[in-house]
Amino acid sequence: MISTQSSGAAVHIENLDKYYGSFHALRNINLSVKRGEKIVVCGPSGSGKSTMIRCINRLEQHNGGRITVLGTELNDDVGNIDGIRREVGMVFQHFNLFPHMTVLENCMIAPMIVRKRPRAEAEATARRYLEKVRIPEQATKFPGQLSGGQQQRVAIARALCMQPQLMLFDEPTSALDPEMIAEVLDVMVTLASEGMTMICVTHEMGFARRVADRVIFMDHGEIVEEAPPEQFFTSCRNERTRQFLSQVLGH
């Protein structure tokens, strides 16, 4: 079960290295996330933030270092990985809803075939979470019939239906029209207030200020700065962070 060094830690990353061919995408990343903690990861594009959170549920394989998620170390053991993915929900930039299924089926399929829940139970759970993301009336529609903001909320509900212990958000609002960003962020804020462990890659600095316990700034595959939001926004130590913040907050 949970080993001593990572007790209480939802995610523990030690000396993580990741290469794409000869490109050094992640350099010596160290990060520990406690249960219930909310982490916001930001940084310029190409800085490795998406790659890092995709390593946490092994959509990307790391080349060096150790990643321990919910007490299990990620290695080539496929059973372990499927076990961790069951407990780690993920929301993608482009939603990635299954277009050939209705909204309700999108939310029911994984609990039914992965967790082997009976259909009635899966449907009740799905309807509960669709209620929670405020689109219960869209249950019988197909994803292609919804707006971007609605699709992303369905994607959040789909992940929550697996009743995960940890949620990863990979730029969840970057593909949305401005007027739809708020509805998605609202859902995420509610989720945070209920104590979900969250790691969010996002440029929404207002969201970071409101919910984050820690903000992490990455550049060139490294963690450059790591601080609580108050400190991060007012007195960051690093020149690159300051430059990035002035670009994001500047207008």
Partner: peptide
């Protein structure tokens, strides 16, 4: 992204 989403949900 379709296969990634399915993977992330723990599907075999």
């Amino acid at each position: 992204g379709q296969e990634e989403a399915a993977m992330a949900l723990g599907m075999s």
